[in-house]
């Protein structure tokens, strides 16, 4: 659910690849064919795909933490069950995505090590805290909505195992979106205290939501090869526009206030105007200096350490690792 704002390498060099094979490979993508794990692919395609799917998987795992914060104190049993189901879905999505990334030759153990050491990134939004129950409602509705826009686009990409994982994930996301919308509507149509609570959460989360799709096209390296290879299916700004178009009217419908005085739709161009998000802050947070980066990784580290004896106890002598097939 949580894929968005991937960080790609800046350059994509194809110099070292076999020109004929590259031509055939690009022709297949152009024709809408899917690339499968045992097919020939440019080294740069493999590298960028591993990075992208791995970031997505880490985002699902770490993304479970802010929402998980409120499981023990969910208001009522029904909401507790629903939130637990959603958080379990997210962890399941990570499993599907790690498996898809592994087909490209990076082991799950390497990915876990790179997450904990800080070498691999995950979606920036999860470095912010869920301060109240209403934050989980806003996350479940709007962050999941953003993720769905991104994932539906990427499920039409070129790499077979990633597309298939995304299709399965999107099916599950539809419940998250409805659940999140229901939770926000309940608070927004409730008592003045409940309304104030959801308004506060929206105000807090608007900045991370605007950051979610990644840096503006004006400043991010416009990587034509990523588009040509169908690794990236839409530009960051295009996805942000699509999100605003779909969800701002729904937010305004509830009489909630979005903390951006510049936010309006230009009827002539059909495009949304908004205050340019602070991309310096985005960079600072993704590189480790956000409100929760340290906690998120410390919790992940603790989970690996505390689970080690279980994993070891179940290990068998004759086990051998084979890269998953598809």
């Amino acid at each position: 659910m949580y894929g968005g704002g991937y960080i790609f390498d800046e350059s994509a060099s194809t110099e070292l690849d076999d020109a004929k094979k590259l031509e055939a490979f690009e022709a297949r993508i152009e024709a809408g064919e899917k690339i499968e794990p045992s097919d020939w692919m440019p080294a740069e395609y493999r590298k960028q795909l591993i990075r992208m799917i791995e970031q997505h998987a880490h985002s699902e795992i770490i993304g479970a933490l802010p929402e998980g914060t409120w499981i023990t104190r969910a208001p009522g049993f029904k909401r507790k069950l629903a939130l637990m189901a959603k958080v379990q879905d997210e962890v399941g999505h990570a499993q599907l995505l790690y498996s898809a990334a592994e087909t490209l030759g990076k082991s799950r153990e390497d990915m876990i090590n790179d997450l904990i050491s800080g070498k691999s990134k995950y979606s920036n939004v999860f470095n912010y805290p869920a301060e109240t129950w209403a934050d989980t409602a806003v996350i479940a509705w709007l962050i999941d909505a953003g993720a769905i826009i991104n994932q539906v686009a990427n499920s039409k990409g070129s790499y077979g195992p990633y597309c298939r994982a995304l299709e399965r994930i999107c099916t599950e996301e539809s419940f998250h979106l409805k659940y999140g919308h229901d939770s926000v509507v309940f608070l927004a149509t409730g008592t003045p205290v409940q309304r104030a609570m959801v308004q506060d959460a929206l105000t807090r989360w608007w900045k991370p939501i605007m950051h979610f799709f990644g840096p503006s096209d004006k400043i991010s390296v416009h990587n034509t090869i990523m588009m040509k290879w169908k690794l990236k299916m839409a530009s960051n700004d295009d996805m942000r526009q699509k999100f605003l178009d779909m969800y701002v009217p729904k937010i305004w419908d509830l009489g909630l206030n979005i903390p951006d005085p510049e936010l309006r739709k230009d009827e002539a161009t059909g495009k949304w105007h908004y205050t340019e998000p602070d991309w310096e802050e985005f960079k600072r947070v993704i590189n480790g200096d956000g409100p929760c980066n340290r906690e998120r990784l410390a919790v992940r580290k603790m989970a690996e350490e505390k689970g080690e004896w279980v994993r070891r106890a179940l290990m068998k002598q004759d086990e051998r690792y084979i890269t998953p097939l598809a």
Partner: peptide
């Protein structure tokens, strides 16, 4: 859980830590 703020990973996550794969 008393998790240290700046602790390094105390275990080595080696190949097969996550077991083998099944289709």
């Amino acid at each position: 859980a008393d998790i240290p703020k700046d602790g390094q990973l105390s275990i080595d996550i080696k190949p097969l830590d996550q077991w083998q794969t099944y289709e």
